[in-house]
Amino acid sequence: MPAALTPAAAAALLRDGGVLAYPTEAVWGLGCDPENEAAVQRLLALKQRAVDKGLILVAADFDSLRPWLDLPALPAQRLAAVQAHWPGAHTWVMPASARAPRWITGAHDGIAVRVSAHPDVAALCRAFAGALVSTSANRSGLPPARTRAELDPFLMAAVDGLLAGETGGLDQPTPIRMALDGRVLRT
């Protein structure tokens, strides 16, 4: 298992194209620079996840997500409803901007995003100065790791680093809802 990194060291690793394991609100996640296609493809290969499914982006603040989103496509009252839940353990699928590549959106016109209140996630995103890919640290079809001890040895041998910290204690991964209508996609 890689040594635990500080947020600054983890952010440097991400800027260099690395893939990182890090604690989130409920489970351990895998992350990378969403603008680095090679890093995203490597992360997807490690997870054995199809690119068509799309990925979540997590950030410490809404401004870091703005470039990825087509905000004029979202009615103001719906945007206000989304923002009322942030920072927090709520993921929303919002209209994606033209900047959002298919290796992030998958086969979708929207992009799943979250402004996290988890202190380790927020510190990592601030150190990176932007949004990061956030997907559970497990191979597709296997249960996600809730603790550091549960992390898959195969994945840990393949990632470039691990952020120091613990998960936030939620029982389930964050719910995912559609920003346009509030419909629940994952509870």
Rank of each mutant, 00 (worst) to 15 (best):
M178S: 13
A11I: 10
L20Y: 00
V133D: 06
A8S: 14
I56A: 02
V133Y: 01
V113P: 04
L74F: 13
L132S: 07
E37L: 05
R186F: 12
A127S: 02
L20N: 06
A4F: 08
N36T: 12
D120P: 04
D160P: 07
P119W: 10
T174S: 15
V51T: 13
W86Y: 10
L30S: 10
Q48G: 07
T167Y: 02
Q83L: 13
A137H: 01
R146V: 06
A96W: 09
D63W: 03
A38F: 03
G31R: 00
C125H: 01
M94R: 03
P72M: 11
L170T: 07
T167H: 03
P153A: 10
V82Q: 09
Q48P: 05
S134Q: 00
Q48W: 08
K47R: 12
R186L: 13
I176L: 15
R102A: 13
A3C: 07
A107F: 06
A80S: 12
H85T: 13
T105A: 06
M178I: 10
P23G: 07
L13F: 04
S116T: 02
A9L: 11
R148N: 05
A21Y: 01
A84W: 08
K47S: 03
L46G: 07
H108T: 05
Q41P: 13
T105K: 12
T91K: 02
P101R: 01
A107W: 04
V58I: 15
A10G: 04
W86C: 09
G141N: 11
E25A: 00
P67W: 12
L124F: 04
C125K: 00
A50Y: 09
A117P: 14
L5H: 02
L5S: 05
K47N: 12
G106I: 04
R183D: 13
L142A: 11
A76P: 15
A98K: 08
A9V: 12
M1W: 08
P34K: 00
A10M: 07
V115P: 10
